[in-house]
C-alpha cells in the first residue's frame, strides 16, 4: 500500500482558488476530448497540483478515478474543513481512498471517491492479477470488500463513506455501514414550535 499524507504545503497552494473547483469546470472542460483525461490538458493550477500529481503517481487507478479522488480531497479539506485528510492507493480495487476526521475529536472515517459512471457489486470481489494496465473494466468490486479492506478498527461496525462525483464535479456522500443501522427517530412532531425550529435548523445547515 502506497501511503502519502496530505501535507500542509499543498493546502496552501489550493487555498484561495480552491473554491473554484466545484464550478470552474464547465465551459472549458467541455471542449476537451473526454478520453484523454480532462485534467491532463489543463494548463492551470489544478492540473499541476502536487497532490494530484502524487495521487497519479500511485499508479493504482485510471485518471477519472484519480481526478474524482482529488476533487473529493479538496472538498473535504477546503469546503468542509476536515482534519488529517490523507489518501491511500488501493491497487486491487483501482481506487484512491481518503481518510480524515470530520471534527478533530471524531473517529477517522474512510471516504471512497468514485466517479458516477462506476458500478460496484454489493458483496463480491473478483480482482485481476498482475499490474495495472490501461483501465480494465472487468474488475467486479464489492462494496463490502472495500469496507472490509479499509476498516481495520474493530470496535465499531465497519463503515465507509461513498463520495460519488458527478461529471459536473458535484459530490454526494452516502454512508455504508455493515449490518442494520436504526434510522434517527423522527423529530418530535407533536410540538409545532419544535418542528419549526427543526426546519430552521436544517436550513441553517444547508
Amino acid at each position: 500500500m502506497d501511503e502519502a499524507p496530505g501535507s500542509s504545503s499543498e493546502l496552501g497552494a489550493a487555498k484561495g482558488s480552491g473554491l473554484l473547483v466545484g464550478s470552474s469546470g464547465g465551459s472549458d472542460r467541455e471542449q476537451e476530448a473526454p478520453k484523454t483525461g480532462r485534467w491532463e490538458l489543463r494548463k492551470d493550477w489544478l492540473a499541476a497540483h502536487p497532490t494530484l500529481t502524487r495521487m497519479t503517481s500511485l499508479d493504482v487507478a485510471d485518471s477519472s478515478r484519480v481526478y474524482a479522488a482529488f476533487l473529493v480531497y479538496l472538498d473535504l479539506l477546503e469546503a468542509r474543513n476536515w482534519h488529517e485528510v490523507s489518501y491511500v492507493g488501493l491497487a486491487e480495487f483501482q481506487l484512491v481512498c481518503l481518510r480524515g476526521r470530520e471534527r478533530e475529536a471524531d473517529d477517522l472515517q474512510v471516504v471512497v471517491p468514485v466517479p458516477v459512471h462506476v458500478s460496484f457489486s454489493h458483496d463480491w470481489f473478483q480482482g485481476r492479477s498482475g499490474k495495472l494496465q490501461a483501465s480494465q473494466p472487468d474488475v467486479n468490486t464489492g462494496m463490502r470488500q472495500i469496507m472490509k479492506r479499509t476498516c481495520t478498527v474493530s470496535d465499531s461496525p465497519m463503515s465507509i463513506m461513498l463520495a460519488i462525483v458527478e461529471s459536473d464535479s458535484t459530490i454526494v456522500y452516502y454512508k455504508l455501514t455493515d449490518g442494520l443501522v436504526t434510522p434517527d427517530p423522527p423529530d418530535n412532531t407533536e410540538d409545532a414550535d419544535n418542528k419549526q425550529w427543526g426546519k430552521k435548523r436544517k436550513r441553517l445547515l444547508r
Binding site: M147, M161, Y173, L176
Partner: peptide
C-alpha cells in the same frame, strides 16, 4: 449480509 445505506448529511 446487510449493508445499511444512509445519506451522510453532508451537502
Amino acid at each position: 449480509v446487510y449493508t445499511s445505506l444512509q445519506w451522510s448529511g453532508m451537502q
